[in-house]
Write a protein that binds this DNA or RNA. Structure first.
Lengths: 132, 132
DNA sequence: TCGCACACGTTATAGCATTACGCAATTGAT
DNA sequence: ATCAATTGCGTAATGCTATAACGTGTGCGA
């Protein structure tokens, strides 16, 4: 999926996420954009929907939040499954791709004839600097 | 974690989940238990909290639902990470444990010195019978 | 210029989860 | 036996997350 020119709202939402230290909820994004004329959740959700589609933003299912893709240039959709380590202390997210994990899950799916649409891998815990 | 005797509410919630074909949301459980005197979401959430703690129920983060553990007898907490394949067509959930995936994720965490508290692996897609 | 696709704005509503308060039952140490 | 601590329970209120349903404006190809 190529990333087309972002619309005004999409760009605003993307900017907020990009400048954030960590993942943000849709409503947090909304609050940060009130000064820019945002008034309703749907404005955020619609932008997020597209940004997710373009692969420039990821959704963290386990914390109902959104984060920019860690790969500014390339297309994340072509990297296989994305995995996240989420620090419950500082909120930082580490995005990573593990081909071996992908491969293993693929094997399982092949053996069960299960067709994956979307795979979620999220590790919640404590990052190195917070553990110290 | 040993599973102590369930309280009345815990047993009711567990029974509902056990008899269900697939995962249920907390509010669906609530509706199914109104005849048994349940009136408020908290009654369900409190029971679920304990059932999750005992490891006899799992939470599916990506669909905000709950499902009984596929291993009636043994303690699921000792199997390493639990993974789920969720069919978006029929709603059925396949629970599985893949040691190689676990191992691989463990390696990643060791390399990053990340301490995991809870790991979520959920594959949403279409199961074999629904794909036919 | 008509029709279509798309982004946008607004209101309302649906769905998921927790906070706060108080009471009752249980346990367990003294 | 008694008191204190813990745990479960009931209720009301609230907050957070997400979508439905409506209408408007704009750009663009047939």
């Amino acid at each position: 999926m190529n990333t087309p020119q972002l619309t005004k709202n999409q760009a605003l939402v993307f900017d907020v996420l990009e400048k954030a230290e960590g993942p943000l909820s849709a409503y947090t994004i909304l609050d940060k954009l009130r000064d820019h004329g945002f008034r309703a959740p749907l404005q955020v959700y619609r932008a997020l929907e597209k940004l997710l589609e373009y692969g420039v933003v990821h959704r963290l299912e386990s914390i109902n939040s959104f984060v920019v893709c860690a790969h500014p240039d390339e297309n994340c959709h072509s990297h296989g499954t994305v995995a996240f380590a989420i620090c419950e202390s500082c909120g930082q997210v580490i995005e990573f791709h593990d081909h071996a994990v992908d491969h293993q899950l693929m094997n399982w799916m092949r053996s069960k004839k299960f067709k994956a649409e979307k795979t979620t891998i999220e590790i919640r815990g404590v990052c190195e600097s917070c553990a110290a």
